[in-house]
């Protein structure tokens, strides 16, 4: 029979502070569902980062630490080395992970740190009001690329999943999207596998989640998912980049 669907146990009940239509809320729920389904609620320590999700420790029911901008993988490393038997994950945005925290994510992956990273890529700095991110697409208008990202002076967007997939220590890397129901279902599958990879002690795992930022993109939530599908998915190809055949 049809299951009763409700808010996952690992998610607190208060309303989240995100803007209407923001993918963060979906990603939070999916992560919480995965943790519930894997029976990890009492065993998980999460790391919040800097960006719109800076205080998502308020939204989960398990232990969490809040990290400085970009440093979540280092903080998670510290936690995991103290509690190797716990499940430790970071939840980071694109400014956090792909700009100021590039060194930390690369080295956590290179060390094969047994942590999982949920990487929210919405091509913009949401919290500071829509500045250009390392993942901002060529030509994309942001508050610091008002004429559109000019690749000759502002460089090219970074495909972090492809970068990290090259590292031996990174064993599972997948890019997913949260723009519609079918993709959310696929995304959850990938996130679940990423956690399983950690539980099996295989190495570093990351899921890059293409997400919307309707507010800073200046679009309605519905138009935002359309923009993601049309523009982001072309540059950031969905799919598994590493660890597709891992049996976990």
């Amino acid at each position: 029979m049809m299951p009763v669907m409700q808010s996952p146990r690992s998610l607190e009940k208060p309303t989240m502070h995100y803007c209407p239509g923001c993918s963060h809320g979906i990603a939070h729920r999916v992560v919480a569902e995965v943790i519930d389904e894997l029976g990890l609620e009492g065993n998980t320590i999460g790391v919040s980062s800097v960006g719109c999700s800076y205080n998502n420790y308020l939204y989960f029911t398990f232990d969490m630490q809040q990290a400085a901008h970009g440093r979540a993988p280092a903080v998670a490393t510290g936690i995991k080395r103290v509690h190797p038997e716990r499940t430790v994950f970071t939840y980071q945005g694109d400014g956090d992970l792909a700009a100021i925290g590039t060194a930390e994510i690369i080295h956590a992956a290179a060390r094969g740190e047994k942590i999982t990273t949920i990487f929210i890529n919405n091509t913009t700095y949401g919290m500071t009001s829509g500045q250009m991110a390392p993942t901002t697409l060529a030509g994309q208008v942001t508050t610091t690329s008002p004429a559109g990202r000019n690749t000759s002076t502002q460089g090219y967007p970074i495909r972090m999943s492809e970068v990290l997939a090259q590292l031996e220590g990174a064993v599972f890397i997948e890019r997913v999207s949260m723009h519609d129901v079918n993709h959310i279902i696929q995304a959850k599958r990938a996130i679940k596998k990423a956690f399983r990879v950690q539980m099996a002690g295989l190495g570093f795992s990351m899921v890059e989640v293409l997400s919307t930022c309707p507010t800073n993109w200046g679009l309605t939530p519905i138009k935002a998912v359309g923009w993601l599908e049309k523009n982001m998915m072309e540059y950031y190809k969905l799919g598994n980049l590493k660890g597709k055949d891992l049996e976990v």
Binding site: Q65, A67, A74, V75, G78, I79, K80, V82, E104
Partner: peptide, 9 residues
Amino acid sequence: NMVYGASGA
């Protein structure tokens, strides 16, 4: 920051 994580743990 690893210190922060480990100490927090």
